[in-house]
Amino acid sequence: MHWLHRYNRLLAAATLLLITAGGLVTSTGSGLAVPDWPNTYGYFMFAFPLSGMVGGILYEHGHRLIASVVGMLTIGLAVWLAQKEPRRWVRHIGWIALAAVVVQGLLGGITVLYFLPPPISISHAGLAQVFFALVVSLAIFTSPGWLARYGRSTDGERRIAADGILRRLVIVVPAAIYGQILLGAAMRHTGAGLAIPDFPLAFGRLLPPVWDPAIAIHFAHRVGALMVTLAVLATAGHVLAHHGGRRELTRPAWLLGALVFAQVTLGAWTVLSARDVTINTAHVATGALLFATAIVLCLRTHRDRFSDVAARIAAAPDAASAVAIGAPGGAEAGR
């Protein structure tokens, strides 16, 4: 199982690299540098000569090659899970991840063949993050910490389970981040990235003085960023204030705070630099990391809802009255 978890982490890293490469494709405007699909300038994609990896082809064909590696790794993961993983629902998620990566590849091909229609390209960007979330979730489900229930006692588990505010916040945050990602993808694929050219104001005002669809999408992304930032800060603050002893929660909480700060900075910088390729791409990658971190915090918070822990809590004597709701985690150390 340990190697399966390592393999899963490798796949998660490869997926993040793939998303970053996809960000490079759009940031450099190279999405149609290879006009055919699945071939590359008539070559079978793995036979395309390295000497041809020039200009926009480097980004687009590179993205396809990384995608192929991720696809093959996902096949390996699904098969590995099918053979070795005792939890049926984990095996099922492996197959769902495989289906997602196949659909993702098809969307990538369709968007090239139809000259990047925004609905397809936005779907491609949205599904990429869903696939990443699935892979990260599988990495969590196969991790030693998850399997050891993060060293939580029954009381410790109850304390987290009883914290309704945290339980809701950790669901709201990834949902809000995902909404932001879709808005960002809509901006990117409709050319609205500079629809509002200044920051933090909009045309020198708090609200744009003129509106069109591009300005509306762009402004919605800014408002969304503010909401996500507030939600992340509230969640991280709550975790640190009430579950400070649980490292499996505090670490992603700290990371969330740092990433949201970096992400807002990169978003502003993207506008102010008129979509500098490096900054724009880093904004995509950091968004994916932010989403994945929120998923991790969500799953770890809701660990008790998964069968083995839930059964253990149900079987234990009722100690709810002894649990100080929202109190710091105390001596229990997470992993």
Binding site: Y114, P119, S123, A125, G126, Y178, L182, R305, F306
Partner: peptide, 26 residues
């Protein structure tokens, strides 16, 4: 076994992806 929880989690992610699609260029 909390299948319902797992499927809720997966369904939310898939639905979110599906929601972003739609439409086609004339």
């Amino acid at each position: 076994m909390q299948h319902r929880t797992m499927w809720t989690f997966v369904s939310l992610i898939i639905l979110a992806a599906a929601a972003c699609g739609g439409g086609s260029d004339a």
